[in-house]
Deep mutational scan, measured.
Amino acid sequence: NKFNKELQWATWEIFNLPNLNEEQVKAFIDSLRDDPSQSANLLAEAKKLNDAQA
């Protein structure tokens, strides 16, 4: 299933962003679980936040 692979990839990527704190990671993962179809958008937002906090 396409969404499942995207969800797994986005989850792994978010867990490995070095500049997000635990609460931010949890919030993004919760959002992914709530709406897996938004995984690409949520990953992009997480990466933006990660870069901003570098």
Rank of each mutant, 00 (worst) to 15 (best):
N19V: 01
E6P: 04
N1A: 01
L17R: 00
E13M: 08
T11D: 04
F15Q: 15
L17T: 00
P36M: 06
Q8E: 15
K47Y: 14
L43G: 01
W9N: 13
A44H: 07
Q38R: 06
I29N: 03
F3W: 09
A10H: 06
Q53T: 06
Q24K: 01
N1Q: 05
A52K: 12
L43R: 03
N19A: 05
E13V: 11
N1M: 02
L42Y: 07
L43E: 02
Q24T: 04
N4M: 05
W9M: 14
A44S: 11
L32V: 06
L32K: 00
N41G: 11
F28D: 00
N41H: 15
W12P: 02
K5M: 08
L42A: 04
A27D: 12
E22W: 05
W12Q: 15
K5N: 15
Q24D: 04
E23D: 07
K48M: 12
N21V: 06
N16Y: 05
N50S: 14
A46M: 02
I29E: 02
D30I: 12
R33W: 15
L43Q: 03
L7I: 13
Q53R: 03
L20Y: 00
A10D: 03
P36L: 07
N4G: 06
K5W: 14
T11N: 05
F15Y: 15
L17Y: 08
F28A: 02
E23W: 06
Q8V: 12
L20R: 00
D34A: 12
F15S: 14
N16R: 04
F28I: 05
L42K: 05
E22M: 15
N41R: 09
Q8W: 13
N4E: 15
A40F: 13
D35V: 05
K48R: 13
K5D: 15
N1G: 06
N16Q: 13
K2V: 14
E6I: 06
L43F: 04
A44P: 01
A46E: 01
A40R: 10
I14Q: 03
P36K: 02
D30G: 08
E45Q: 15
I14K: 03
A46N: 00
L17A: 01
W9G: 06
F15H: 14
E13T: 07
D34N: 05
L49F: 05
N41K: 14
F28G: 00
N19Y: 13
A40W: 13
I29S: 04
N41V: 12
S31D: 05
E23M: 06
A52V: 12
R33L: 12
P18V: 07
F3N: 08
Q53Y: 07
E45W: 05
P18M: 07
S37V: 07
F28M: 04
A10F: 15
N21G: 09
W12L: 13
E6M: 04
D34V: 14
L49V: 12
Q24S: 02
N19M: 05
P18Q: 10
E23F: 11
L49T: 08
R33G: 07
D30S: 07
Q53I: 09
E6G: 03
N1P: 03
D35M: 10
D30M: 11
E13W: 08
L20M: 01
R33F: 14
P18T: 08
W12K: 14
E13I: 13
E22V: 12
N50K: 01
L43Y: 06
W9P: 03
S31F: 12
S37K: 08
A10W: 04
P18H: 11
I29Y: 03
K5Q: 15
A52E: 12
T11R: 06
I14G: 02
K48G: 07
R33S: 13
N21L: 14
A10N: 04
D51M: 12
E13A: 08
A54E: 11
E6D: 11
I14H: 02
Q53L: 10
L7T: 06
K48V: 09
V25S: 04
F15P: 03
Q53V: 06
D51L: 10
D30N: 13
V25L: 06
K26A: 10
K5S: 07
L32R: 00
F3M: 03
V25I: 09
L20S: 00
A40H: 09
F15T: 15
K5V: 13
N1K: 01
K47W: 08
E23Q: 09
F15M: 15
F3R: 00
K26L: 09
D51E: 11
K5R: 03
A46F: 03
D51S: 12
V25P: 00
L43W: 03
P18G: 10
E23I: 11
N16T: 12
N50Q: 02
K2L: 12
A44I: 11
N50D: 04
F28V: 02
R33T: 12
E45P: 01
E6Y: 09
K47Q: 06
E13R: 03
N16V: 04
K48P: 00
P18Y: 07
N21T: 14
A46R: 00
K47M: 08
D51Y: 06
E23V: 12
F15V: 05
E45N: 10
A52R: 10
D51H: 10
L43I: 14
S31A: 15
E13H: 08
I14E: 04
K47H: 11
A40E: 11
N1Y: 01
N41P: 03
Q24P: 00
W9R: 07
A44F: 09
E6V: 07
Q24E: 04
A40N: 12
A52F: 12
N41S: 13
K2R: 05
D30L: 11
W12A: 15
D51T: 06
K47V: 08
S37N: 08
N19K: 03
R33E: 12
Q53H: 05
P36E: 04
N21E: 07
D30V: 12
I14F: 04
L42I: 15
N1I: 07
Q24W: 01
A54D: 10
L49Q: 04
L20A: 01
S39N: 06
E45M: 10
Q8R: 04
L7N: 04
F3H: 09
P36N: 02
N50E: 01
N41Y: 13
L17K: 01
L43V: 15
Q24H: 02
N50M: 01
L17N: 02
I14D: 02
W9S: 06
A10I: 14
L42W: 08
A40D: 09
N19W: 05
W9L: 14
A44T: 08
L42V: 14
Q53K: 03
S37P: 02
P36I: 12
D34P: 01
N41I: 11
A40Q: 11
P36V: 06
D35E: 07
S31T: 10
R33H: 14
Q24A: 02
L17V: 01
A10Q: 04
N19T: 03
L20G: 00
L43H: 03
Q38W: 05
E45A: 11
L42E: 02
W12R: 10
R33K: 12
T11G: 02
N21Y: 12
A54G: 14
L49P: 00
N16S: 09
L42N: 02
L7W: 08
Q8K: 06
E6R: 02
E6K: 02
L32N: 01
L49N: 04
E22P: 08
D34T: 11
N4K: 02
A46I: 03
K26V: 09
W9A: 14
D30A: 13
A52Q: 10
K26H: 10
A54P: 07
L32S: 02
V25D: 00
K2Y: 08
A40V: 14
